[in-house]
Design a protein around this nucleic acid. Structure first.
Lengths: 408, 408
DNA sequence: GGCATTATGTTAAAAACTTAAACAAATTCA
DNA sequence: TGAATTTGTTTAAGTTTTTAACATAATGCC
């Protein structure tokens, strides 16, 4: 039950019903393709005539194309299958991280068109934009058969203003109020550019994913753990943004208000207990923190190294992982109590040790969730080779064409 | 940007546009009444003819009535004002609390029709239902001019299943899996009955409120502090429910995982630091907890007493309030970081001391919010005489008639 | 091979709404 | 009294869904 906002609503016009049904049809073709008109009429619970009209529009616009005829049925005329006309239009996805920046090129349904390319992230915004633009132009030039680029999606490890396209604060890049969109738009005047925080983008990557093995959850949380902890929340099929586009910051909800110092300036944040740095510092037996310099030994030691050692019998490494697992679970319990999602997605290097830490995580979740069902909230590990951040950047570009129209 | 759920959507029909515009018109009449057809056509950015058709339907259904003619304009024909036809239809609101249960009767726009009545809450469900039914029937009988009761809304201090109408767990009542709806429905077969958790109902009371001084926020959080702590979250005009209708449980997010024991069985929950019991026990210098019996002195001492003493120069009382204020602020900071609402509403006895505690609360919020704007999130105190829980119960009954139709 | 059966997709007309334009009603101002 | 102005209704046109009929294409049975 949603309240209509009396200060901001959309009156329905003659075309509203068509607009709604058009988006539903597109969504169904996207998730069910190949699919016939008759299939759509059954799925949408409307008559075939109406589907004919809708599809004629979509064919004319070039969003949909007819393919082969099917032959599943034992009798009757064979259906002509419909597909999204994903070819000849592309999206560029950019994942900006502290050390390297990654680029991926896909068609309109997210099929990868080129190998992922990357370059070291330059911290000087102007220089960064220059290198990035060159690589994007290269990608577009290498794919001449693609007639139009539908957009560039950028994902940033920090807070963004989606309206102005500014990076408000990205601690690991040292960026503050960088006009990323304006700078890039100068280079690509005709191409729409979208910017989003990486935690939120990861959440987007999951609602807009079209993997067949997975039912479409419309309430989910994505938690990614690396240098920092990013969280994105989707409620009712929509990203939880909040008034300043900062919603979802579970990383800095405390486990203990007087606990370990955190990079944000406060104490005892969840992030201070479960970031890669926290786990590594735990292994080296010190309360290393972002505010203390690392020893040389620890600085060159990655979480992957630690997992390797834990797997080869290093008891201290395993103990460090297990303690991180416990804190991870305690924080997830808070997320579950607050959001009550249908599914939690977990990304980051430490998830490669999921088999080692799952029992500890689960136990900690059960310890603090309020009812038993909540303790059983399903958790899915998202491996790095699924590129959730890049996939989120793709969704920034491709999703608007399928989104529900704003109504009432 | 909302994703259409390919497993659960609503195809638009011939009547969908009318349905949408009808609900918008009702919403606008509700918030702007008295209002003319011409006003509506301007507000909705459509032509007057369309409004005439819409209003004719609503007049025929008896949802809207014509009133006096206005004379604001300096020239031209005077408008005929439209009003919601709130008379002759009523809602019964029931607020079930640990010690007493309160009843309020309103018309369809929430105007109070009778004085609030109450009775001691009987913990035996069957007995409780018997007493409650008698009082409701009395109220209906005393208002014979009311021809139809549109529903009964019940608010419970515990977890509810809104589909089955069961109270899953209400600790202060000692109820577990009580079939409240089924039992009451036997007594009132023809009247729709709605049940909701009290924290969520308080949040509802604010989005559906029609006070003129307040702009309509579509993202808000309601925090009510009494024996326990209840939280309700509204996002995008819709209550955040989660998969099991338990979302919003910030009360049991820890301030310190090894902190004070909480009634929920875990340690260090926010509730254990800011509930009335926590403040009182702090005053008596003990770490009283829900798991320890109270001293006789403390048992008969209310939070109102404590506030009174703080106002009359009792330094220890003031210190206890100030420490609660600090913890209150630290928890609110987490809520702000996670939800980033446009406004926070605060209810409960302790808010009567808001002038004494606001600086401490504000300071603690600023200490842990991630950007400056978040630290300035507006907080509005909701006094007890606005009856937020009863108002939420009213909204359960009256809101569905104004809600946005489910579309796409 | 021919014909009934079955399923897909299109077409034509009907029904439900919004929109545009014209008009009636009611009021002010000169 | 008449022009101007605003409100509300009516009529007709335009857009879209819906219903019903029909063309198309395949299978299976005689």
């Amino acid at each position: 039950m949603r309240k209509i906002n009396p200060k901001s609503f959309t009156t329905a016009t003659r075309g509203t019903s068509r607009e709604i049904n058009r988006q539903i049809a597109l969504t169904l073709i996207r998730t069910h393709q190949p699919v016939s008109r008759a299939d759509l009429s059954r799925l949408m619970d409307t008559n075939r005539a109406n589907i004919t009209f809708l599809i004629n529009d979509l064919l004319e616009e070039g969003l949909v194309r007819e393919g082969a005829t099917g032959n599943d049925a034992k009798r009757g005329r064979r259906p002509t299958f419909l597909h999204l006309n994903s070819h000849q239009r592309c999206a560029i996805a950019v994942d900006i991280r502290a050390t390297r920046t990654y680029l991926m090129m896909t068609d309109m349904i997210g099929k990868q068109l080129e190998n992922i390319v990357s370059f070291p992230t330059e911290l000087e915004p102007e220089k960064f934009i220059k290198t990035l633009s060159k690589l994007i132009k290269q990608l577009l030039a290498d794919n001449e058969e693609v007639s139009a680029c539908d957009g560039i999606g950028l994902v940033v490890p920090g807070m963004t203003d989606i309206k102005t396209g500014m990076v408000l604060h990205a601690p690991t890049l040292g960026w503050r109020n960088v006009e990323l969109l304006a700078l890039l738009q100068k280079e690509f005047a005709d191409i729409p550019i979208y910017i989003e925080n990486s935690g939120k983008a990861c959440a987007l990557s999951q609602i807009w994913a079209t993997r067949s093995d997975l039912q479409a959850h419309n309430d989910l949380v994505f938690v990614s753990i690396s240098d920092g902890v990013g969280v994105g929340v989707v409620i009712n099929g929509e990203l939880m943004r909040g008034k300043h586009n900062t919603a979802g910051e579970f990383a800095h909800v405390p486990l203990s208000i007087d606990g370990l110092p955190c990079s944000c300036g406060a104490n005892g944040c969840w992030e201070a207990y479960i970031s890669n740095l926290a786990t590594i510092s735990r292994y080296f037996g010190k309360n290393l923190s972002p505010r203390q310099p690392l020893s040389l030994e620890a600085a060159n030691f990655t979480i992957e190294d630690l997992v390797k050692r834990a797997r080869t019998g290093d008891g201290k490494a395993l103990a460090a992982l297990h303690l991180t697992a416990r804190y991870l679970g305690l924080g997830l319990a808070s997320i579950i109590n607050v959001i009550d999602p249908s599914q939690i997605y977990l990304g980051g290097e430490i998830t490669e040790a999921w088999d080692l830490i799952e029992p500890q995580v689960r136990a900690a979740i059960k310890e603090r969730t309020l009812i038993r069902d909540l303790g059983a909230t399903p958790i899915r590990i998202v491996p790095a080779n699924e590129y959730p951040r890049l996939r989120g950047a793709v969704a920034l570009v491709t999703a608007p064409a399928f989104a529900a129209p704003k109504v009432a």
